[in-house]
């Protein structure tokens, strides 16, 4: 889905766009101070922490077994016994959402890890080895023409329906943005004097990349990864909603909405809460991503 592509609006003025040294370091106090002042980032982190902790503890805190059917309790509205109601088989929605959160968050994590890894490798190659740049970028341009969801749907059509395939599809469709961002960042560092100097001294390319380039492009990667994390969860949920992702009885959030819509006008809770969870988590990632950008990379676009 959408990434925020707005310009940063804070008025930190960085006189030299190539001077990477003055950028906020990820682990400095400055960074934490800036993050602390950013309300959005705080709210985002709180939302995410809530979902991460509850999902992690799902087997312990879930009040009911996740897949056990109890036909007598089917389609009950929210109550003290079932906080968020029950589904058509009498399964507790809150329980299923806790377990579904693990699936959704892990899917996002895997998708970002895969697309991030591929994207960073390709981006560094394109940015550093200028001869390959044009080929890689032409390829990425071709991939970029497909909106990510459309591409994910096409890939699922090839690989077949299912959770793993949906995850791979989402990951592939997120690769182009990583390549672009990483390449841009590498390009801006590559021409700096100390890299030139290192090269002149005959330092091996992989050493230059590993010691000097990667540490300096880590900030934009982290920002993008945060934003893509939310985007991937949303894409994966959309695939599940189209029936192309998680399979029953998997409680992935998009799949819960998919199942719930068959009961929309008689059991709205089956649809409302999982959708709300998707929205909150994606919002959390977007807020945090924005905050990170403000703190780490004040003049990025």
């Amino acid at each position: 889905m959408l990434k925020s592509i707005e310009k940063n609006n804070l008025s930190f003025v960085d006189p030299d766009p190539i001077d990477t040294q003055s950028k906020t370091n990820l682990f400095s106090n400055n960074f934490f101070n800036k993050i602390k002042k950013n309300k959005g980032a705080i709210i985002g982190s709180v939302i995410l922490l809530f979902f991460i902790i509850t999902s992690a503890l799902a087997p312990i805190i879930a009040p009911y077994p996740v897949n056990e059917m109890n036909f007598d309790d089917s389609l009950q509205g929210p109550s003290l016994e079932h906080w968020l109601g029950t589904d058509e088989f009498g399964r507790d929605i809150w329980t299923r959402m806790l377990h579904g959160g693990r699936v959704s968050l892990l899917m996002g994590l895997f998708a970002v890890t895969i697309s991030g890894t591929i994207g960073v490798v390709l981006g560094v190659i394109a940015g550093y080895y200028r001869k390959l740049d044009i080929y890689i970028m032409q390829f990425i341009d071709i991939l970029m023409t497909f909106p990510s969801l459309l591409m994910a749907i096409a890939i699922v059509a090839v690989l077949g329906v299912g959770l793993t395939n949906a995850m791979i599809a989402v990951a592939i469709s997120a690769v182009p943005s990583f390549v672009r961002v990483v390449r841009g960042a590498v390009l801006s560092i590559r021409e700096t004097e100390y890299i030139e100097a290192a090269r002149a001294l005959g330092v091996k390319n992989w050493k230059i990349i590993g010691r000097h380039i990667l540490p300096n492009v880590i900030s934009p990667i982290i920002i993008l990864a945060t934003l893509e994390f939310g985007g991937s969860i949303l894409s994966a949920a959309s695939l599940s909603f189209l029936g192309l992702g998680a399979q029953p009885p998997n409680p992935e959030w998009g799949a819960l909405v998919y199942v719930g819509k068959s009961f929309l006008s008689q059991a709205w809770w089956m649809t409302l809460f999982p959708g709300l969870a998707i929205m909150l988590v994606v919002l959390g990632f977007n807020l945090l991503g924005d905050g990170l950008r403000d703190a780490l990379d004040p003049k990025s676009k």
Partner: peptide
């Protein structure tokens, strides 16, 4: 306003659609 904008970006369209119809 900015929170609203971000909610617009974050909300799953299919989910919004269902409740708009309802």
């Amino acid at each position: 306003a900015m929170l609203l904008a971000l909610v617009g970006i974050s909300a799953p369209g299919f989910w919004i659609a269902l409740f708009l119809i309802l």
